[in-house]
């Protein structure tokens, strides 16, 4: 079983709003860089499949060489090799096209996993584009993945609940976070072993960009008009709150 996970190194997604700032229309360089939030869930899910099926796991990313140090965490968690396609584009089609090149450079990928969305652009669209380029099904928001009798059984977390789906052959799944795929803290031995795992660097190839023209990136202003209600006497506080909600026609 050979699983590929697509991951992206992004600026700290937990930077508090108050502290967030832009430079050149992107998150300021001063923020730490790290593996994307859902990408780690995807890696964890892949490792669990790998462990169950005694398979192998390739971590693929599109980004700069500087990202390798952060991708190593994925290797320490359990990926067997890293592939980095060197590039700087933010265009979903360009990223997807380059990731397809990387995927085609390795043999027999049985399943491709990606995080539900990158923690910077928040698009969630690259895995779908890539699936279409590969001609395989794409299913988003997957929690659990199982391999039985030659086909994949996956659980999609929908707005209403869950649904279990089955397909055979390769496919692309985007992974959401569930309690069972909390990323593991790599063991020390694995961290050292990861330093020796192969890193394949590929040059990016020309891809057709999407016809989107970025006009502006801005930080939305958050208004602060909070009216604090005295809670000395909870009963009184509740009455005031309900009155105010009625007065302002919220209720």
């Amino acid at each position: 079983m050979h699983i590929a996970v697509l991951a992206k190194v992004v600026p700290d997604y937990l930077v508090p709003s108050m502290d967030f700032e832009l430079s050149n229309n992107r998150a300021h360089e001063r923020f730490s860089r790290m593996l994307g939030l859902y990408d780690e869930n995807a890696i964890e899910t892949a490792i669990q499949i790998k462990e169950k099926t005694s398979g192998s796991l390739t971590l693929i990313s599109y980004g700069s060489e500087n990202d390798i140090q952060f991708l190593r965490k994925g290797a320490a968690m359990g990926a067997d090799q890293l592939i980095l396609v060197k590039g700087t584009s933010d265009d979903a089609a360009v990223i997807a096209g380059n990731l397809v090149t990387a995927l085609q450079s390795i043999d027999n990928v049985d399943l491709v996993l990606a995080g539900q969305q990158s923690a910077d652009m928040d698009r969630g669209v690259v895995p779908g584009i890539l699936a279409q380029m590969l001609g395989v099904p794409f299913i988003p928001q997957i929690g659990y993945v199982d391999h039985e009798n030659g086909s994949w059984t996956v659980t999609q977390i929908t707005a209403q609940g869950k649904r279990e789906l089955e397909f055979s052959g390769p496919g692309v799944l985007s992974i959401t976070s569930i309690p069972e795929n909390v990323p593991r803290i790599p063991a020390v031995r694995a961290i050292f072993a990861a330093k020796k795992k192969p890193v394949i660097k590929l040059e990016s190839t020309d891809q057709k960009k999407m016809a989107l023209n970025e006009l502006e990136v801005a930080i939305p202003k958050i208004e602060c008009v909070c009216e604090f209600i005295d809670v000395e006497d909870p009963g009184q506080a509740v009455r005031i709150l309900l009155n105010r909600l009625n007065e302002e026609r919220y209720l």
Partner: peptide, 19 residues
């Protein structure tokens, strides 16, 4: 939604459309 997200990327690629 799972429907919209499931379709958007593949449609974009199949139609060479921006998404």
């Amino acid at each position: 939604s799972t429907l919209g997200t499931g379709l958007a990327g593949p449609l974009s690629a199949a139609l060479s459309a921006p998404v």
